[in-house]
Simulated assay, not measured.
Amino acid sequence: MTRPSMPVGQIGDYEIKQLKIFKTVADCGGFSAAETELNISRSTISIHISNLESRLNLILCRRGRAGFSLTEEGAVVYDATVKLLGELENFRSTIHHLGSQLTGSLTVLFSDTISLDPRAGMPQVFRKFAKLASEVYLTSEVARMTEIERQVLSEEADIGFIPYHRSLDGLDYQHIYSDTCYLYCSKDNPLYSLDEEELSDEIIDGFPVAYAGMKTQENISGHLANMNLKATAYNYESRLALILSSRYIGYLPEHYARPYVEDGELKPVALDRRFYTLEIMAITKKTCSVNKVRSLFIKTMQDHYRQ
């Protein structure tokens, strides 16, 4: 039977110690198995667990002839303990970084316009990182998505920022923000003056298109499948130049195209159906090795986004 809940109050060093013992007991599957791991007697372990249960006013585990098991409340406390101890370790790691002079280098690669997109906040992240690691040599470059993936996997680069288009086993992905991309034409393009009801799919698909020129995720490929692909422009800047020539139409992120739309230079085509979403990701290599410089940059970046 669940006891009436009571305020927990302050969590101090003694409670942290008890929670660590509780976690070890749960991980080991019982008091006896935890004796060797903790290097304390079973009776001492039992006292710590009983005191923790009294402190939390909860029954955390069942022990007896039937064996050891966590109660429903114990399982919740276990998950919360894992999270708490993880946060404490992150805190210690951060303080360690702050208290030591980091040296070495960091290479950050960006696809297209991500580095200056306000939602990525890179100027602010770079400023905070440079203040914490003033002796680290920083390299920041723009590259194609596939090249960014290759360099991160080969550890030529430490972190990359790309639109998500596939999942590679050797990479970790962290979502940064989302982009909606619309189909645009320029003011001198014949499509510009047409009303929405006049913009049939047949007319749109017959007009020359400038596109990235690479295989990408299915929802984007579906939009291009029936279109008249006539020009390749991987970067948004070069694609924009082709669209502004009035000879081509093409997809651009709404955020990037907005100033040109507001100035009347561009117009979205078939706004209700010609669009797709890009998920912008930070990618790093899955590795067990410690890279303090990269870890500090990622921590600085995550702290900025949490704010």
Results as ranks from 00 to 15, higher is better:
Q217D: 11
F31C: 06
M122L: 13
C181A: 10
D79I: 07
E237W: 01
G222I: 07
L171H: 03
L194F: 00
E237V: 09
R144L: 05
D13H: 15
C288L: 13
E53R: 00
A66K: 13
Q101G: 10
I159K: 01
C61S: 14
G9W: 01
L98G: 12
D272F: 09
S245Y: 07
I11Q: 07
S32R: 11
A210N: 01
L242V: 02
R65E: 15
R274C: 14
S93K: 13
L252Q: 01
D303Y: 05
P7K: 11
C288P: 12
S186G: 08
G121P: 09
H223R: 13
L19G: 01
Y251N: 05
D79W: 00
H48A: 03
F129T: 07
G170W: 03
K128L: 11
Y177E: 04
I49W: 00
I59Q: 10
V269K: 03
G30E: 07
H97V: 06
L229Y: 06
N226P: 02
K128E: 15
S221V: 12
Y177T: 05
A282Y: 04
V77S: 00
G67W: 03
I162V: 15
H165V: 12
I176W: 00
T2D: 13
C288E: 12
Y251A: 04
D27C: 01
